[in-house]
Each structure stands twice: as C-alpha cells, then as structure tokens.
C-alpha cells in the first residue's frame, strides 16, 4: 500500500492492517509524531491532518480509505503560505499553554484560512468548534487567526 504524505510517496508495509487509523500509521510507522492522539472518537480534534486540503480527524480515517488523496501533517504545514502565516501568528502571541492540542488547532485554522481568507467570529466558531483545548486558549486562538489574516 502507498499513501502520499507531505508530498512524498510513502510505502506502508504489509504488517499494517489496512483498517488501521491513519493517525497510528503516521505516528508508529512513519515516525510523524507531531499529530497527537486525544480522544480516539473524533471529538477533540487533536489528531487533525489535511486530506486534499480539508481538515480530517486521522483517528477515524482508516489508512486504506486515504486512497490517492494527499495527506499533509503538522510537520509540513509550514511549507504552505497559510500554514506559515498561522504558525507565525501562533508564535507571535504565544497561543499554546500545554500545547497538546495545538497541532490540531493549527491544522484546522490553516484549513479555515484556505477556505475563508477573511473569517469573522462565526466563521471561526464553525471551523474551530471541533478542536478542544483543555487549557482554554480559545481567546488567543481566535486572536492569532485574526492576526494571521492581517499579516503579509
């Protein structure tokens, strides 16, 4: 089995059950541990990756269902213009507290900017509501998204 991850064609060995969630293939087989395991039932958003540019919960997407679609993870999102803007805005106001959910937050925020270049509060709510932050950094997340829009 092959999947495209961060622009590279990756071979998935026969030892991997095709029904394995993409999350575990990324972390345990490809060594991409930036994507985090949170709840395992698509309710927290920590495992968010992009599949053809859309935010997808990798804990619920089995590796055989990825097909020919392009997977992008937190390790490579900075190579995209919106990803770079979001990451810079994140660092600028120091959004994370414990940081565990932040890879997923950044992936969802980047997908939001790609879809809606100038989001208002309700756009941010609709796009980010599925990403939970136990530390409650929501106010800084919202601010960083707005700052990223203004940055050049």
């Amino acid at each position: 089995m092959h999947i495209s991850v961060n622009g590279e064609d990756r071979v998935i060995g026969d030892d991997v059950d095709p029904k394995t969630p993409l999350l575990w293939v990324l972390r345990d087989h490809l060594g991409l541990v930036g994507t985090k395991y949170g709840c395992g039932i698509a309710q927290c958003g920590a495992c968010t990756v992009h599949v053809d540019g859309k935010p997808v919960r990798s804990c619920q997407l089995t590796v055989d269902n990825v097909g020919n679609r392009a997977v992008t993870t937190i390790e490579a999102i900075g190579n995209t213009p919106n990803g770079a803007k979001i990451q810079a805005a994140w660092i600028d106001i120091e959004v994370p507290q414990c940081g565990y959910c932040q890879a997923g937050q950044i992936m969802s925020a980047t997908a939001l900017l790609s879809r809606t270049p100038n989001p208002d509060d309700s756009d941010i709510d609709a796009a980010m509501a599925g990403n939970i932050c136990r530390c409650g950094t929501y106010i800084r997340i919202r601010q960083a998204i707005k700052n990223a829009v203004k940055s050049v």
Binding site: A42, Q60, A129
Partner: peptide, 8 residues
C-alpha cells in the same frame, strides 16, 4: 453540529 458532528 459544528463541535461534535462536522468533523466526521
């Protein structure tokens, strides 16, 4: 829906 359902 936005928080609990839209992701899947």
């Amino acid at each position: 829906f936005a928080g609990a359902c839209a992701s899947c």
